[in-house]
Design a protein around this nucleic acid. Sequence first.
DNA 1: AAAAAAC
Length: 683
Amino acid sequence: MFNACRRGPASLSRVLRAGSTLHLQSARPSTLSLITQCATKPSIESRWVHVASQLRQQATGAQSVPRESVQNQQQNVAVTKFQELIDYNLVHPNVVNEITRGMGLHTMTEVQSKTINQALRGDDIIAQARTGTGKTIGFLLPMIQNILRENPDFATRKRYSRARPSDIRSIIISPTRELAEQIAVEAEKLCANTDLRVQVAVGGNSKRAMLRKMQMEGCHLLVATPGRLNDLLTDPYSRVSAPKLTTLVLDEADRLLDDGFSKDIEDIIQLLPDRREVERQTLLFSATVPKEVMHLVRRTLKSNFHFVQTVQEGQQATHEKVPQRIVTIPGIENYLPCLLELAKREISKAAEAEAKGADFKPFKAIVYFNSTANVELAARIFEELRAESGAFGRHPLHPTEIIEMHSRLTQERRTRASDRFRRAKSAILFSTDVTARGMHFPNVSHVIQMGTPPNQEQYVHRIGRTGRADQTGEGFIFIPEHEIPEARRRLRGLPVSPDKSLEASKLDMSREAQLPAGLATSLDQLFAAVKIVDRDTKIKAYMSCMGQPAASPVDNVQALNRWTKFGWGWPAPPAISQSMAMKLNISRVPGINIQRNRLFEDRDAADDLNGPSRSREGRLDNFPDSRKFGRGGDSSREFGRDSRGMGRGGFDRRDRSTGRGGYDRRDRGMSRGSRTDDASSLF
DNA sequence: AAAAAAC
């Protein structure tokens, strides 16, 4: 696993005879490697002895060696077992023991080995490694040791500690509150036998309570989200400051340095002590590092920083062990039928394996949507599912839990949702990208993405919620036909293979069809649930999709209107304002429902255009009522629709005229890139 | 009228 370059068996065996299992790191620079190369190359043996003795002195806190001379050493020795950190006196046993005995970890992952060895020297680092490979310990361990080296007193737990809120040595910034909490839990474990205090500063909870805790216990390691951290550092009454800051960590660094966050981060850096006066180490970690943020990385780090890259160029950013399937579907209305079919299939697959006593993995899935409103709608509908008609029917997926997670929940509910999902044996977590990065939920079997992710990085992070450590997992992504050109661009180069195993993915819901019994039942269950969910939730979901950037707003609104008609049974799509219609240039889309000025309109006419009001929903919805088709218990059943209410039959005509060929032709015109790469052959 | 993130 370790990218070792063994140069000559003789020298290697000499190293091994010396009683170590040290590996020698390749000196060959990778294309993206920015590791500063040493001009002189001493022999391997002398290099080894040199570094080992240097590090020994560092670990004991000896100040006899100036930092420059440490930096000037050849840096090609890497420890790969946690125990060796004790053996070579590199990290205090009180910290390492928590990992080896407490967590049962022994061998470092590649990113851990590389970053721990490098960061112990105090240099700035940006580290890129695949998801689920233990980056957190990779920065916590050297960070803690570097504090202990400067402050040996903290290494043992004392009965009384006199830490204050201004004792902060390390600040770790995370893009989400839950990730901050998760990092803090890990940090507390590592610090359990030391005198170091860990505090969390995130939004959504009581600032006063947090500050009180901080005053009482003091703080050495602060894990924070940008907003609250900024708030604390600017609030003179908080008494939170970091005059002795030695380490700054940005987890999910590319996210923190991109457009949405970079302003916050720059403000925070302005509030920290000047690096020229208080020397500090900056560590950046992420599974993805897009080129666009590299200039910000360079600005944030010292000029001689190290780029620790364990994903070689040309290699997949995702794990080979996570098969990723792409399912193209006729429209948005197919999302939930597909999900229900997939869930039922995987749940019974697991049950069968369990019954046979075979190895099995319960169905535990995260389902990503691109907007909060869509997460809410899908979760509501899945909560309302019943196996039989009537309110007292059992849930068809029982005992699989249905959980919802996004930022519009109160912080209390967010915490409860992630705790519940963490503990659940079998569950579906409907989520926004709030859980896409860094979050560790044990045993996630499936990551399911509904629609095209905002960018390729986000796809990689979402997939990374499964197949963590040595576990396996599967990825599914559902792409409605109108998104195919955009999806092709954003997923370019990813190892996704087409999957047509789901009946519901082939179902054109605008047409009549003979359906297999299982699919017919699932559709009945879904339609019954859709009917119960209130109208407002649906409109919000519709509007949220309208606001998303789309390659073609016209195709987008047509797909959305089709969804309201065949997914919800609405005679007309929700009304949108004139100004929005103008802005998106969709005023002339057939069947579009533009809000007219009510002052000059007949009230009832306006109501009709807005679709049925809540009180009349049951009567006006033109749902295919399963009872209309009879329930014969036969193996197949007619599933029919009419196309009334769409105005001039817009969709039917469009459906016939835009086949796959239409998309291909248009895409050829729009895409500038090569068409010979992986993704282009996949759709 | 689009994730997230401060009060």
